[in-house]
Simulated assay, not measured.
Amino acid sequence: MNLLLDTHTHTVASGHAYSTIIENAKEASKKGLKLFCMTDHGPKMPGGPHIFHFGNLKVLPSEVDGVEILKGVEANILDRDGNLDMPEEILKKLDVVIASLHDVCFPYRDVESNTEAMINAIKNPYVDIVGHPGNPLFDIDVDKVLDAAKEYNTCIEINNSSFVASRVGSYENCLLIAKKAAKMNVKICVGSDAHIAFDVGRFDKALEVIEKAHLDEEFIMNTDVDKFKDYLRSKGKLLNR
């Protein structure tokens, strides 16, 4: 399976990432990607960017080194109500929004709380992708989360970094999520979650999960730029592009 775009990448603005947007674009071009999403952490992440970072994304070009760039955020889910660390007036201007649970921003640990928080974030009309839902720090009711993702037309992420650089112990959780998503025809986005340019477009372990889960290419948004952009348009994004 050939993946042509990366839906989850970070720049130095995230505070604990090490490459610029230009360096990421050059690496994406080198690897033959047609598009990637710039999704720096939301402002509640320690060391993360100020809200002005997201308000000023309009100054970025839409293409660098022949690779299209979508401007977004990996927003932090803050509570059981699914509130994010980004105001609505910023969210509605972004091309793509990932919502994720991070232990430094979300204090709960029981299955009910984690599941409720994730589902409420999924219900947010500005959220397009649920980030790394297989994180073993946050046990969830997989069936309930996938039911919500399908109902609200929200993608579930397979996060390559979870298998190689962070969130140790994610593999079996992610494989289970992928297998259930395959049966339910839930939309999938594959993200490198790159925190350095060399990892942009790195999908090796994610592809292994995709193969084992027998996910249908039709429901993987990374195989075609137009398919991904049409998905975002169905969520009310990119309407002027």
Rank of each mutant, 00 (worst) to 15 (best):
I98L: 04
Y231G: 04
E63G: 03
E74M: 10
S234H: 06
I51F: 01
A25V: 02
N83K: 13
S19E: 04
K205R: 08
A75W: 11
G236V: 06
H10R: 10
A13H: 08
V209R: 09
R202M: 01
C174I: 09
N2V: 12
S166V: 12
V104S: 14
I156S: 03
I119T: 13
G201C: 03
C105K: 00
L33P: 06
D40K: 08
F219S: 02
A197N: 05
V168E: 07
A197Y: 01
S62K: 14
M38C: 13
Y108L: 08
D81F: 00
M1L: 09
L57R: 06
L5C: 01
P49N: 13
C189E: 00
F52W: 13
Y18L: 12
P43C: 15
M45A: 10
D224Y: 09
I210D: 03
G42V: 14
V164A: 09
H195W: 10
D216M: 03
I196S: 06
F52N: 14
K92N: 11
M45Q: 11
I196Q: 07
V200W: 06
D147S: 01
P46F: 09
I122L: 14
L35G: 06
L91Y: 10
K205T: 01
K144H: 00
R233D: 11
A165G: 06
V64D: 01
I122A: 12
N153Q: 04
V59D: 08
M221L: 15
Y152D: 07
K229T: 02
S19W: 05
V225K: 12
S14Q: 08
K229D: 08
K205H: 06
V200C: 10
H102M: 08
P61L: 14
V168F: 11
L175P: 09
G32N: 05
E218Q: 02
G134R: 00
E88F: 04
K34T: 01
N240I: 13
K71I: 02
N24H: 11
S113I: 11
H195I: 12
A165C: 02
